[in-house]
Design a protein around this nucleic acid. Structure first.
Lengths: 341, 341
DNA sequence: CGTTTTTCCGTAAACGTTTACGAGAACACA
DNA sequence: TGTGTTCTCGTAAACGTTTACGGAAAAACG
């Protein structure tokens, strides 16, 4: 079943060294022998043992994406990440790299899992998502000298590292601009309660947007909750019951918006009619909700591809002739105007 | 940085064999030396190189979950699988196994990816999801003698294999029962157009349910679409515009229901008032939609745990003293009555 | 034909583990 | 003291690759 390089060598009556060289496309092997080797490999259904080559080369040819549920959440934010992963995987495959997604148990915030991946050398590099404002994972990886890239920024990290993020700050400000232009002055912001960095960026943009229009930031109109439907559901009534309730709400993500709209519905408040609703990160949910939610859309699949390029560019073994480079980029979020505001 | 077993041996002035035995908890090593080895391992920050032990043992200590987007879909059905994966991963970890999620490119239906995993021995077993009625992956794995388990059943497979499925047939029939009891006789069914096995099971149950009440199955009330929001959106108007339109719709999954409800909204038809809507597989979306959707709920996390047990029980190396066993189970879907019917 | 270069291939070591085997030391028992 | 048993540990092979090195044969060159 499992045919090794020795089987090929024996079958062709040549040495294993030659077989290996032929397979790996090295120059010092006769064109004819190479042909025979490749053919034998096909007929004997040979494919190289990963453990063997990893051990010899000190490289696993795989990149790990760390997947972690948030505490209090069972959703992983996947509607967001799946298109991203498609792009990432496609680009990595071009360089012969496999993408593996490493699961963590809920609650331990990946540290333990990450250590495992790094120390047992299960992957050549990792991709981190859901970066936090202070992110111990980033500190650990830089300190360990392990290659990585992040989707999202962070304050952590002694050395620079490749990162790709969305411009949540601009989106937050743009959302305010649009609502103000439509006559709103009481605008609420609902965001995750965790230390997630994009949550801060969003709030910064929101605040700057308000100030730009001479509107004071009212703490009563800002609320934090779990980053899931239940979080939005729990927290939205709170801002609606403030002394001077908002006429518009900006939700930081789609699932919190879903929960929030549920709460609004139960209060008899209709998005798009009685209140304006804007969502920062667009997903199919926003589009197919009724009313369709105005949202800011990321280019997820291209982002995945780009992050792969950036990650590889930072690793000496994969970087081009000009040597490794650290690339950091922030991509725009594009407004998709729909019916909810 | 990367300390090996040789480093430990040199540091302690003993042989690598002894170190290895101490680390692996074998009996023939002095309690005192074991203590010293373990301590040195901690201070030198040793952890075994996976490639090394995999190569030697012929086992990778990891299980692969094959993740594949459907053609025409970018969603992966993750809201469904994530809690399942949490359970799966938790149980596998108890046996020292890592769960890795292997991505496939959209469209190639995993075959290529699966071959890669199997042939390069990247995992000791795989878990398949989204089983099809005729599933070449199952044929391939049985023929290759590679351990696997599925969530979902299939017609394929020369030999029996562990599988865990939900009782879509009963859920379909129960949904009909409930709707009939509430006075409906024109009941539509909307399901994925792919060869997915649960789609057939659902339709069987639906048909049997109707016949049980003496209601003829009307092909005009059955529609197939992409298993995503767009699919439900595209296909729902078709059944609504039939000569004798339905007064109730059963959707096979949450995302198609979301799209379908969008289409209904645009036609001025309100779920829960103008039409009854039932969803077979419950997710947070169903709960937080307005109106909350009546749905059938699976116990996803326990299912993940159970499948891990079943998979391990089927592998000689992990099975208990009574030897390997093939377990197949079908779990119930529990009705959660809400506001949409 | 002698010398140099090129082409091609075999040999063997190395990657980090695990483990079968055997041997020395300590101990028990008569 | 002689014999057998039990504890411990070192030695070395093996897992499947890749690759540095060197050498034989062929080709090129004068």
């Amino acid at each position: 079943m499992a045919s090794s390089i020795h089987d090929l060598a024996r079958h062709l009556n040549i040495s294993i060294g030659t077989v290996s060289r032929a397979l790996n496309g090295r120059a010092d092997v006769n064109a004819d022998t190479r042909q025979r080797v490749l053919e034998a490999a096909r007929t004997l259904n040979y494919s190289p043992n990963q453990s063997g080559r990893s051990l010899r080369q000190g490289a696993t040819h795989s990149i790990a994406f760390m997947l972690q549920p948030h505490p209090g959440d069972q959703q992983y934010g996947e509607p967001f990440f799946m298109p991203f992963l498609i792009g990432l995987q496609a680009k990595l495959a071009e360089s012969g790299l496999d993408l593996i997604v490493v699961m963590g148990a809920p609650g331990d915030y990946q540290q333990e899992r990450l250590r495992r991946v790094v120390e047992t050398r299960r992957a050549d590099a990792v991709v981190l998502a859901w970066t936090r404002r202070e992110d111990e994972r980033i500190d650990y990886l830089t300190q360990a000298g392990f290659p990585f890239a992040t989707v999202g920024r962070s304050r952590s990290g002694a050395r620079p590292y490749p990162s790709l993020d969305l411009d949540f700050e601009k989106a937050g400000a743009d959302a305010v601009d649009r609502l103000v232009a439509r006559g709103h002055r009481r605008i609420a912001a609902i965001r995750p309660s965790l230390d997630l960095n994009f949550s801060y960026l969003f709030l910064d943009g929101y605040s700057k947007g308000l100030l730009r229009h001479g509107i004071e930031v009212d703490p009563e109109l800002i609320a934090d909750g779990f980053i899931n439907e239940a979080g939005g559901y729990a927290v939205t009534p709170r801002v609606m019951r403030s002394k001077n309730p908002p006429t518009a709400i900006i939700f930081n993500n789609d699932v919190m918006a879903l929960g929030g709209c549920k709460a609004l519905a139960e209060m008899g408040i209709r998005p798009g009619q009685d209140i304006a609703v804007t969502v920062i990160v667009d997903t199919p949910l926003c589009r197919y909700f009724s009313p369709a939610l105005t949202a800011f859309r990321p280019a997820l699949e291209p982002m995945g591809q780009r992050l792969a390029e950036m990650l590889l560019a930072s690793i000496p073994a994969f970087a081009g002739p000009e040597g490794p480079r650290i690339i950091r980029e922030v991509w725009p979020l594009e407004l998709v105007a729909r019916d909810s505001d």
